[in-house]
């Protein structure tokens, strides 16, 4: 008699997420952080037309009420027109307040003195100008800027330091990009936003995946295993390519500094955040 054989199923990358559960958690987080702890019941979100800022706007609108959320569109002259129209889809769907502030004059005002700046520098200037606008609108509207950076771009260093990462509160920073997509579907973000190729839209025809040289699906899975402590061979054995693993590891290892505040020389035994330690909500 042949005995029945039961095979253990190999575990997939730990990316599965109960999107409805996570949405409830993040909405509670936003209410606690903005209303109860900071006493600022209004939020301001830079709406790029992409999925991260759309999800952030949905979470804020649900947590705080649409009337307390401002979606700010900040186009530059070379921005893809579809970024504006996709952002408008979010504004219309949620009935949040909105402003459109063109950053072209501000960016070009500086670039007149730096006409030779390459695309990377120009992109950083745009990102940092948007940060300036968001903080100024925050002061004008009495609304707290809420960040939109996800865990994948934070780990890969795919953001402008002291620009995209500056808002005081970030609901998405511990979610991989593929998990943000799951939340977007749960929240009912328009599919034209969810399904389009992600793009920083700082240069013509730019997409995240072509910039990074890897798909988000692969990057997220490799990152998920890497952060748990798996070495390259263990990840390789799970069906990923050595080139992709090396790419992800080098981006993570090369950008630790971007995930920290400025390096401060220590001279005393009361150095802030080294010896003098107080939590952010104290």
């Amino acid at each position: 008699m042949t005995l029945p054989v039961l095979e253990a199923v190999p575990q997939p990358a730990p990316l599965r997420i109960d999107a409805a559960l996570a949405v409830r958690w993040l909405e509670a987080f936003l209410r606690d952080e903005l209303i109860e702890r900071r006493g600022i019941p209004r939020a301001i979100v830079g709406l790029s037309g992409g999925v991260d800022s759309a999800v952030t706007a949905y979470l804020c609108a649900h947590a705080l009420g649409a009337e307390n959320v401002w979606g700010i569109r900040m186009p530059y002259k070379t921005s893809n027109p579809s970024s504006l129209t996709d952002a408008q889809l979010v504004i219309d769907a949620l009935q949040i307040q909105s402003e459109t502030i063109d950053i072209t004059a501000a960016v070009d005002g500086y670039l007149m003195q730096e006409p030779d700046a390459d695309g990377r520098r120009r992109g950083n200037i745009m990102a940092r100008t948007r940060m300036l606008v968001l903080f100024d609108q925050s002061a004008k509207l009495g609304a707290l800027p809420v960040g939109t950076g996800n865990k994948t771009e934070r780990l890969l260093g795919y953001f402008t330091w002291h620009a995209d990462d500056t808002p005081a509160v970030n609901p998405l920073g511990d979610l991989f990009k593929t998990q943000v997509w799951a939340l977007a579907r749960e929240l009912g973000v328009p599919l034209s936003i969810v399904d389009k190729p992600p793009s920083a839209d700082l240069e013509a025809n730019q997409t995240d995946e072509s910039d990074l040289g890897i798909t988000y699906a692969n990057a997220d899975a490799i990152l998920a295993f890497m952060l748990l402590g798996y070495d390259d061979d263990a990840i390789l054995s799970r069906g990923f390519e050595r080139r992709d693993i090396a790419l992800v590891r080098s981006r993570v290892d090369g950008t630790h500094w971007k995930r920290h505040l400025p390096t401060t020389a220590m001279l005393s035994n009361t150095a802030i955040n080294e010896f003098y330690l107080r939590p952010v909500d104290y």
């Binding site: 599965r16 997420i17 559960l21 996570a22 958690w25």
Partner: peptide, 11 residues
């Protein structure tokens, strides 16, 4: 502190 959102329905 809550973590682990694989679900279903519970942290």
């Amino acid at each position: 502190p809550g973590r682990g959102f694989e679900g279903p329905g519970e942290l």
